[in-house]
Amino acid sequence: MSAPAVPPGWTAVALARDIDAGTSAGVVLGGAEIVVWRDTGGRVHAWEDRCPHRGMKLSFGFVRGDRIACLYHGWEYDGTATCRYIPAHPDLAVPASIRVERYRAAEASGLIWVAAEGTGGAPPEVAGLVALRSLFVDAAAGDALARLAAEGFPGLGPVSGVEQGLFLRFTQGGTAFAVACHAVGPGACALHVLVAGAADAALIPATAAFRRAVEGAA
C-alpha cells in the first residue's frame, strides 16, 4: 500500500513561528504524514515522516545541528534527507542510498508551505498580515471554509469583503482576516489564521467558538 501523496502546488501547513529552530513537528496533509523541521540555522525541511530503518516517525526525533536524528536507534539524516550516521555502526561509511522522501518547503506570509518535489515557484507573500494561530477542527476543509465565509468567527460581527483563493479573505468587526486551510483527512482540517495589523489574544476565544460551532454542526 503506498502512502497518500503530497499534492503538487503549495499548501500552508503551519505558522512559521510555531516551529522553532532546532525542533520538529508532525503534519498530516490529506493523509500524508510529513515531518516539518527546522535545523539550528533556521532552515525548514519537509520530508515523509518515516524513518527508512524501521519506520519510526521522524517527527518524534530530535534535531542536532543540520541533521535530524530518529528517536528509535538514532540514525541521523542531513539536509538532503540522506542518512549520514548509524550509532550502532559508528565506523560505517553509510551508503548514500538510505534516504527519506523529500518535499519542497518554503516560508511566506508567516507560514510554512509544502509542495511535492518538482513544484515550481514560491508560495504567496501577502503584506500587512500577522499570524494569529493554527486552529485544528474536526470538520472537512470545505465545510469549515464555507461556514467561515458565510458567518466568520462567532461574536465578531457581520462578514464582508469575502474573497476566495489560496487564502479565504474577509473582514469582520473592522479586522481583515486571511485564512489558509490544509485538509488533514476527510473530516479534519487546520485553519491557519492571519490578521491585519496586530495579533490580539482577545481574538482567540472567537476562533475556539468557531471550532465548537462547526464541529457541533458536523
Binding site: D18, D20, T23, A25, V27, S59, R133, F136, V184
Partner: peptide, 14 residues
C-alpha cells in the same frame, strides 16, 4: 493522541 494539532502546547512543553 499525537501532538500535531497542538502547536501552542508543543512550544509550551519545550
Amino acid at each position: 493522541l499525537d501532538h500535531d494539532g497542538f502547536p501552542a502546547l508543543r512550544q509550551w512543553a519545550r
